[in-house]
Design a protein around this nucleic acid. Structure first.
Lengths: 213, 213
DNA sequence: CTCCTATGTAAGAGTGTTTAACATCTATGT
DNA sequence: ACATAGATGTTAAACACTCTTACATAGGAG
């Protein structure tokens, strides 16, 4: 025996390890970050948490379930970041809408390794319960701001969710292209945030134009 | 021996199989399509081509090399589709620009299994030689049309590549969101092509507005 | 015809996921 | 306290997949 009783490193919520469930999520997130890929090894996450290779299966049905938990964490981060930004700006202003877009791009591009988890491969399958709430919260923050913008300049005939999807798509697309190094290929030394800003401004300008659908 | 000499099914370029190289690419593409994932098994591609599990490694260094070849095929399809569309419309018209966007969305969303290969995980690493030419051809088709549009209505002070990137980003973003079932979640019964069309129109309208950067 | 090289096969090493059987810890009731 | 049930963790091994090595064979050039 090695007398490694490991009594109370952290809050002693769980039995043996203390909190293997969360420790595994954190370990997996770290490995994904380090490898810049979701293709980490289950056994490495286990080792990093200080347990044997089979232990994780007491907490997660399989590797995909662990990935889903990490995905949940990632969406939590995005949602929190979005809401924090919304509170720093006057809702309904162009600045607010642009800031939300910039924040989105910032989050996505600074965590490229989480992309697959959030929108890629994984997004297509699985992802059950958390799907409804967590994934939509951030979007409705944007919708709220867009609705305010419409009301403020007498354009209430527009459908705020639809406009929001269009704005979201542009930010999402720019973030994707940036992560794939497409932006720098066609626009050397481009600033993605400036791109989003001017793009959004042009779009909003178009909405104000008399020749709008 | 099974007397399966398989003499001349296709052009007899290669020795034993005839053309294992291409047969493997096709088999891999099929498997990716069927599994709706790039996570196919090398041995299955080999079996489908009628050879042993080690044979593919005579033609492809590893699995990633085979995936890269499939990716090449996918980009070829996208490029051809884009150029075909460009030829059907008067360059420089809004119809042409919108059609290019619709074609892009059509290609991406009808081949969702190729997304990872083209823009996802794989896109980030590897992908060597084909990167420069094939991946850019389609884009420059768009740039050309945008440039014509600018010239046609005296807006030549705009940077066509930059505008093209913005338009591309919107189409790309919409396609991504559609594949992840985000569109239908927030806009039930939405038509993504109508969304792209109105979005593009609004953007172009914004460019014509006097209050443009 | 014989040899060289491109191509393919068989077998297995290495890596990683997951399960099964067994061991140990914590909580709970008495 | 103490026993016990059930949750948590360990070891060993089954299974799947990638990729390598050693050997076999086919077809063309001399």
């Amino acid at each position: 025996m090695t007398t490694k009783t490991k009594k109370s490193a952290s809050t002693n919520k769980r039995y043996h390890h203390g909190d293997l469930h969360d420790a595994l999520i954190i370990a997996a997130a770290q490995l994904i970050e380090e490898n810049a890929s979701v293709d980490f090894a289950m056994i490495d996450a286990a080792r990093r948490a200080g347990v044997s290779s089979a232990a994780p299966y007491r907490h997660f049905k399989d590797k995909e379930a662990l990935l889903e938990a990490v995905s949940h964490l990632a969406f939590l981060g995005l949602t929190e970041s979005t809401q924090a930004i919304a509170q720093q700006f006057q809702p309904g202003t162009e600045e607010c809408i642009i800031a939300l877009g910039k924040g989105y791009i910032q989050f996505v591009t600074t965590h490229p390794q989480f992309y697959d988890l959030m929108w890629g491969d994984m997004g297509l399958r699985a992802i059950g319960s958390l799907d409804s709430d967590l994934k939509t919260l951030g979007f409705y923050t944007l919708v709220e701001s867009v609705q305010c913008w419409c009301d403020a300049i007498n354009l209430s005939h527009y459908d705020a969710p639809e406009l929001s999807v269009k704005l979201w798509a542009t930010a999402h697309g720019l973030a994707c292209l940036a992560m794939n190094h497409q932006l720098e290929k066609f626009l050397p030394d481009v600033d993605i945030y400036r791109l989003l800003e001017s793009s959004t401004q042009t779009f909003l300008e178009g909405l104000k134009s008399p020749a709008s659908p």
